[in-house]
């Protein structure tokens, strides 16, 4: 009887939360697409942690987020009309998965990882961008899509001094350099070559690409400071 009472109590405790989740996943198509992309990235990269996905109503400030508490990745609906192909959506999801992996690593199952993130968010954002490139390639997606989607979506502030994220122009260049070094074939046979947003990246990154060109030609090993 005692056990039954406790079970009943627990069931009642869980009920309102469950009702909310069921409601949220009604929007079948988008959810199954996000799940399909998310889980194929997790499996193809042998990510040994459990990470789940959901689609939520529009957010004023976010397009996607990763919860350090329960490792749930949320895609906000305001992102979806701006996505032109599956690789672009996969790019956003791969970046968030990388945060999810970071939140699992470290002492006490990554209990302090968010503390580290808060101390140096830009470092972990760049790391997440780079890992996203690997995740995408292993899952059969085109990593150049990250540059395309950032070029299209991320606004450019003047400086990034007190911000969590580095300037989007810097992020795109770090991704470009990473693809250049590790997966050059994606840049040679670039399917986004004539894409408007990629073209705009090429237009606005000329100074930065010049820096990279000089680094490669002089065989330098220093970490570049992009603008």
């Amino acid at each position: 009887m005692k056990k039954f009472c406790i079970l009943f109590l627990m069931l009642l405790l869980v009920l309102p939360a469950n009702a909310f989740i069921v409601d949220e996943t009604k929007n079948g198509e988008i959810n199954s697409l996000v799940n399909k992309i998310g889980f194929s990235i997790l499996n193809a990269n042998k990510i040994p942690y459990r990470i789940t996905f959901s689609v939520k109503q529009n957010s004023k400030y976010l397009i996607a987020s990763s919860s350090p508490r329960n490792r749930k990745i949320v895609i906000y609906k305001n992102l979806l009309p701006q996505i032109d192909d599956e690789d672009e959506l996969a790019a956003i999801i791969a970046h968030e998965i990388s945060h999810g992996v970071d939140s699992n690593e470290g002492i006490f199952k990554g209990f302090f990882s968010f503390y580290e993130y808060l101390a140096a968010p830009k470092k972990y954002e760049i790391k997440a961008d780079k890992r996203a490139v690997d995740y995408l390639v292993n899952a059969g997606y085109n990593p150049v899509a990250i540059i395309v989607v950032y070029s299209k979506l991320l606004p450019q502030p003047r400086y990034d001094w007190f911000m969590f994220h580095p300037l989007p122009s810097k992020r795109m260049m770090y991704i470009y350099e990473y693809i250049f070094n590790k997966y050059p074939a994606f840049l040679v046979n670039n399917k986004y070559k004539t894409n408007l947003y990629y073209q705009n990246f090429l237009l606005t990154s000329q100074q930065n690409r010049k820096k990279l060109q000089n680094k490669i030609q002089s065989d330098s090993q220093k970490i570049l400071r992009y603008e």
């Binding site: 193809a44 990269n45 292993n138 059969g140």
Partner: peptide, 10 residues
Amino acid sequence: FANVSYHKKI
């Protein structure tokens, strides 16, 4: 690197 290809891992 034009002929290099990358495959989905299974």
